[in-house]
């Protein structure tokens, strides 16, 4: 009998159930693509909801987009694009076996990702503070519906209505702004969670790289984590214009 079922003919990174490194790599890559397909459908539900509501309540959406700070969104777009670039470079570096540079580029990617989250943090805290919140919390600063909304709230909304060129007085705030911000917070919130998970994954890959697990022959994890990161980036590329730049 084959008593050496555990002994390997291949290199140490080859898991026992694979025959060749190429098979292992192909399987991992295919698995990741399948997972990404899953992610796309996960977000697609939200995009569909977005499309439907925007179709029904165009005014609410156009005013809503003016309540978002397109400059902050723009900065974040640039940051994420840059991080995608460094991630791709990291893959390249690890493919040629340059361990030091891989670490450096992965580190840079993490720094960008944090930058993104910091900007998001400021956007969110401002909205919560003013009371630009979804559903029943619309106009409730810091989720507290007991106190009246601060003047800032009325001002911002009025300014947004102005900017949207809808000739309605402040009394005519579209009801469905609530839904717009429901969609906004769910979409960007889920995206933000994906960014956080990405940070964790990249940090983990960076550590494994430092420990010398990857080489020109074996760098599958770097490759597939970068794939994931590109998807996170891609989703933002859609979110940004759809939420911030309509109208």
């Amino acid at each position: 009998m084959a008593s050496d079922a555990h002994a390997h003919h291949g290199p140490a990174y080859l898991a026992h159930h694979f025959e060749t490194p190429a098979q292992q790599f192909d399987a991992a890559k295919l698995g990741m693509w399948a997972f990404l397909a899953q992610e796309v459908l996960f977000f697609s539900g939200l995009f569909v909801a977005y499309g439907i509501f925007r179709n029904w309540y165009p005014e609410a959406f156009s005013i809503g987009s003016h309540l978002l700070d397109w400059q902050m969104g723009g900065i974040n777009t640039v940051i994420l694009l840059a991080s995608s670039f460094t991630a791709a470079m990291a893959v390249r570096a690890s493919q040629v076996g340059d361990r030091k540079q891989t670490t450096m580029l992965l580190g840079l990617t993490i720094v960008f990702a944090f930058g993104f989250m910091v900007v998001k943090y400021f956007e969110y805290t401002h909205k919560i503070h003013v009371g630009i919140l979804p559903g029943q919390y619309w106009g409730c600063p810091s989720f507290d519906c007991g106190t009246a909304a601060p003047e800032a709230f009325a001002e911002e909304v009025a300014a947004a209505i102005d900017a949207a060129h809808l000739n309605a007085g402040p009394g005519m705030v579209p009801y469905h702004l609530r839904s717009f911000f429901g969609i906004y917070f769910v979409m960007t919130g889920l995206h933000g969670i994906h960014v956080l998970i990405g940070i964790g994954l990249i940090a983990w890959i960076m550590r494994r790289n430092q420990k010398g697990e990857f080489s020109a022959d074996y760098n599958t994890p770097v490759d597939i984590v970068a794939l994931y990161w590109h998807l996170v980036d891609l989703i933002w590329i859609y979110l940004f214009p759809l939420l911030y730049l309509i109208d």
Binding site: E39, P134, Y175, H176, F181, I183
Partner: peptide, 27 residues
């Protein structure tokens, strides 16, 4: 399955944050 996942997530959000996507009382 991911579409179910996002649907249920929205439902949970509706119940906790009342985001106004499925409940007609909130639009």
């Amino acid at each position: 399955t991911p579409v179910l996942a996002i649907t249920l997530l929205l439902l949970i959000m509706e119940k906790t944050l009342t985001i106004g996507i499925f409940d007609p009382a909130l639009g």
